[in-house]
Design a protein around this nucleic acid. Structure first.
Lengths: 121, 121, 121, 121
DNA sequence: GTGGTCTAGACCACG
DNA sequence: GTGGTCTAGACCACC
């Protein structure tokens, strides 16, 4: 379900968080579904439980998950989750566009790339 | 000429490198112009000379600058530098668009953001 | 495993880098093998950890190694590394042959040296 | 007569030395010819006289030149000069061949490069 | 424990 | 004065 990339420069817990968030947003994990336990997921990915713990904490902080002591972690009902996620994404998108303008990229060029990206995928 | 952002998660030497590369690409710093000395720029930004040293080393690696011991660091004649830079940028842009598709962003939304970004700036 | 030559004019971090690259190319260090930690290797060679750090950073840049924060540095799967290395070497070889022609060395002489070198080793 | 390359990583005085040595070995500068004065050559190359001074000192040390106080520097009668030069060169050549063996270069490959280099030039 | 960044201060080679 | 290397020691993020 989740594949880690140790050559990715980002920390493992961030990768795990992102992957799980994507699964939730895409609807693969539906509201109130129970996530695998910290220990189990840690075993599956053969990494340290602390790392999963941290990822789950982030998920909860981001509002994707709620945890019940003694029971486990569950997917939160995604009310405005997608919206929040989108807003954050848009902010990053604008940052990178700004950076592009700094090195002389034109609007046209970016639109072309956009078209290209949305054709194939 | 350069303003550091200590809240930026990236290391300082990377920020300095990027800022200087932008200045070169934009033509503010023209070929064979002498950059400020390692020590002077360090003083101006009130950071350690080693950090600037590292930034300059990166700039040299990237081909934006050539350094002569005992003389100083100079802007390199920019042959295909801008092109290389653009290619790298486009790759990153595609990565982020891909990520957007993963969370359900539509082509239309991104095009709107593009228009917005290019209006103001 | 590594022996430093303090009379060598090249900086230490470069010597370390080269030695490790050779070990990887020769297959002594195989893909995904963990390198000694920065601090340990520094102790073994009785030099400063920063110097090893720099060597490892170079190795990563050259694609010989990938580093994971908190875990360690590992030998990268060597895709075309050997080929790239060879190309660079050939370039340097041509440079030195060119230099030889400048001082009147003949092809014959160099061929003799070649034979000599490949006999002993 | 001499062209400097400021992007060459070697120090200027070494470049000057090498260029002059080559001119002497090739016979362009014949024994007892007077070299340009330190100040004049410095002016011609628009570099610091100290640098030329150092190059001339090296040349004298290497035996390519003898200097007469108050008169100037003169090309030495090249008795065994070429031989000494060759010996040094051969040593370096062997070093680089050795390095090639370390990364798995074969004798055949180097012989091919040799042939290539001596064809064109 | 690991890798990575930064500072402070020294020293070298070069011009 | 310049760039470049190295040491010593600190701190951070990560596992």
């Amino acid at each position: 379900m989740i594949v880690l990339d140790y050559r990715d420069r980002r920390p493992i817990y961030e990768q795990v968080t992102e992957k799980l968030e994507n699964l939730i947003i895409k609807g693969v994990l539906t509201p109130d579904t129970q996530l695998p336990s910290v220990r189990k997921l840690a075993m599956d990915l053969s990494i340290n439980p602390n790392t999963i713990q941290r990822a789950y904490a982030l998920l909860e902080q981001h509002g994707f998950v709620y945890s019940v002591k003694g029971k486990g972690s569950f997917v939160a009902p995604n009310n405005q989750l997608v919206e929040i996620q989108k807003v954050k994404y848009i902010e990053e998108f604008q940052r990178i566009v700004e950076q592009g303008k700094n090195i002389g990229i034109t609007k046209k060029e970016l639109e072309n790339e956009l078209t290209k990206s949305f054709m194939e995928g």
